[in-house]
């Protein structure tokens, strides 16, 4: 079943067409990758899917609802979560609190009930903290719960952002270059985490430059070049696709394909 349908999405910034008439589907339970040379429009596409940006044309259907024009918080509630290319953690909060904040959309305590410390809000807090602890362990950060986000090493920060995104209880998880800056061991740990997340029933759409990771984990790949989709298919076919190879020629990633 198609969980996400992107149809003819176009986004222009002045004279530049950052995303040019892009259409593709993400099927439930899949890990799908979006790749392409720098400036291909991958992050802009992510921003459109999460309402950080609005498309000029086209539609985005998530679970049969057109989500274009929804505010970000509604999209999160609908079940789309994301991470950022430049991690957007809450530096002065602990890892556990970062993940607990991710549960904002799926919890209820308001200003008044929290100020009065009503019993149900105390229970909700405890449940949120327990779930946040579970998610930290899922991404391998169990022993870092009390550390400030600012004190975490780079590789762990990306995992923390994934745990925070999972706390929103997403059906679709968008990961923007999760392996950037990770060493080989950390990338392998990330791949394991992605499988565990997928096995929990979360569909994953990933933007990534690390071709080894992309080829290993993804079921399907969409290739963008200068905003337009130039190929789509399973990793083996993408690796041999002449248009893809041409797009990457002269790019340092070309030999990695």
């Amino acid at each position: 079943m198609s969980l996400l349908q992107v149809r003819s999405v176009t986004k222009r910034f002045g004279g530049l067409t950052a995303v040019d008439d892009v259409s593709f589907d993400v099927f439930e339970g899949a890990i799908k990758a979006v790749i392409g040379p720098n400036g291909a429009g991958k992050t802009t596409l992510f921003n459109i899917l999460t309402a950080f940006d609005r498309p000029d044309e086209g539609s985005v259907m998530f679970d049969a609802a057109d989500i274009v024009g929804w505010p970000p918080q509604r999209i999160v509630r609908a079940g789309i979560a994301r991470t950022f290319q430049n991690t957007q953690l809450f530096e002065e909060m602990s890892a556990l609190e970062n993940v607990m904040t991710g549960a904002h959309a799926v919890t209820r305590a308001g200003f008044l009930s929290a100020a009065l410390r009503l019993p149900w809000t105390v229970r909700e807090e405890r449940d949120v903290a327990e779930e946040a602890g579970r998610l930290l362990r899922l991404v391998g950060l169990g022993q870092w719960a009390d550390a400030y986000a600012a004190d975490l090493p780079h590789g762990l920060r990306r995992l923390l952002e994934i745990a925070r995104a999972l706390a929103t209880k997403p059906r679709l998880l968008l990961l923007d270059e999760p392996a950037a800056g990770l060493n080989t061991a950390e990338t392998a740990a990330l791949a394991d985490a992605l499988y565990r997340i997928r096995d929990r029933g979360v569909t994953i759409l990933i933007v990534e430059h690390d071709m080894g990771l992309v080829m290993e984990v993804s079921d399907e790949i969409v290739v963008l070049d200068r905003g337009a989709k130039i190929a789509e298919g399973p990793p083996r076919l993408i690796q041999k696709d002449p248009a893809v190879i041409a797009a990457y020629l002269g790019e340092e990633d070309a030999d990695e394909l």
Binding site: T50, L89, M93, T101, R164
Partner: peptide, 14 residues
């Protein structure tokens, strides 16, 4: 505190 820390991060938390 999230809003103070990172508006983008806060938006991503819904």
């Amino acid at each position: 505190r999230a809003l103070h820390g990172s508006e983008s991060g806060a938006l991503a938390c819904g």
